[in-house]
Design a protein around this nucleic acid. Structure first.
Lengths: 196, 196
DNA sequence: TGCAAAAACGGAACCACGTTCCGTATCGTT
DNA sequence: AACGATACGGAACGTGGTTCCGTTTTTGCA
């Protein structure tokens, strides 16, 4: 664990020791603040929590979105990895798809405000958007393909589009007790089935 | 037309003439700016386009959201009114529902960025959110009810939830050629059908 | 061990936005 | 024409992301 973008090496030999320590501190503080104040907490709050200056944050994470990516990278990767596993262990491709989407939805819904930040038109969050997509769309495509060849869903569903749709459905899922994103996603997935 | 919130009277006799003229100018300018720059165009741009000071905008429309409401009130009302009409003229309640949702989606997708502003958690847009919901949810509920009694959809679908879901699916529908909100909404509506 | 260059740090400063405030201009009535 | 009520314009404020730069800390080398 620790750094996460210094390639395959053991612990980023090229950086100064305090810099590495600060990066860890920052990740921890950000994660904590995200939990309590949501993903769109002010950068200043995170700096304060970490006992660090603003400059330090921006040196390690060029943009807010990069910090968010760093915080959630592990979980996104875990979700991506779960795809093939589910496909191998589930009774049907359709079941695997459903379970995988559930995983994704749980992830998004749990992170206060994450879904909103995923929007493509949010300036500065292209990196975040891109990371999620790069990592998850291929997995989704694989599951869709499997379900499609099994004849369990319509054959013309695009993985990117579905991911965006599901992500969109998760907007504001917390902060509104009358809206249950999971139910809506369930309807969307139900709509995937072939026309009778 | 013209004022729109002065109750039933003819043309708001209580206001000064220049004030009324400015309100019209502002509505026109806002509509124009929304078309070219999207619904989240800066208030200053609208003031500039109207050749008016910021104070003037905020006197007529206490908040950005109020201005947006004023600009789109006619169209929201038209959509609301179309509900019963469609129910009366369509072959089935399900067909009426589908067509009405299409109307709603067209409206949202056409207005650059409107769907995003509809989010409940956008501070200051409660009024906008509330107006849309007050006006459209009852209509949607009526259509859902009709389709449900006809056995054409699941009986346990909540109108509010469905409207939010559809609204959510429309986020960023422009500005992303790879995402077709209409198709996703179609899937969602398809998912409404009873389990086989 | 001492020291200078390199690497990081902190946080003031900047920009963009929504919104508020208040001195000034205009209206409409007497 | 004059005066009070009504509106106006835009400077100023609060908040949030991001940049910049003078200062501090670390590290490689003598």
């Amino acid at each position: 664990m620790s750094d996460g973008d210094e390639g395959a090496g053991q612990s980023a030999p090229s950086r100064r020791k305090d810099a590495r320590r600060n990066k860890e501190t920052l990740l921890g503080a950000a994660a904590a603040v995200f939990v309590t104040s949501g993903v769109d907490a002010p950068v200043r709050d995170i700096a304060a929590k970490a006992g660090v200056g603003l400059g330090t944050i921006y040196r390690h994470f060029p943009t807010r979105a990069d910090l968010i990516i760093a915080v959630y990278r592990h979980q996104v990767d875990a979700c991506a990895d779960a795809g093939p596993a589910l496909l191998a262990t589930s009774a049907s491709a359709h079941a695997a798809l459903g379970r995988w989407i559930d995983l994704f939805v749980d992830f998004l819904v749990t992170k206060h405000g994450l879904a909103a930040v995923l929007q493509a038109d949010n300036a500065g969050s292209e990196a975040l958007h891109a990371y999620f997509l790069d990592r998850l769309v291929p997995v989704c495509a694989e599951l869709l393909e499997a379900a499609a060849v099994a004849g369990e869903i319509r054959p013309d569903v695009d993985a990117y589009e579905l991911m965006r749709g599901v992500g969109n459905l998760c907007f504001g899922a917390d902060s509104d007790p009358r809206y249950d994103a999971r139910r809506m996603v369930e309807l969307l997935i139900a709509g995937l089935r072939p026309h009778r």
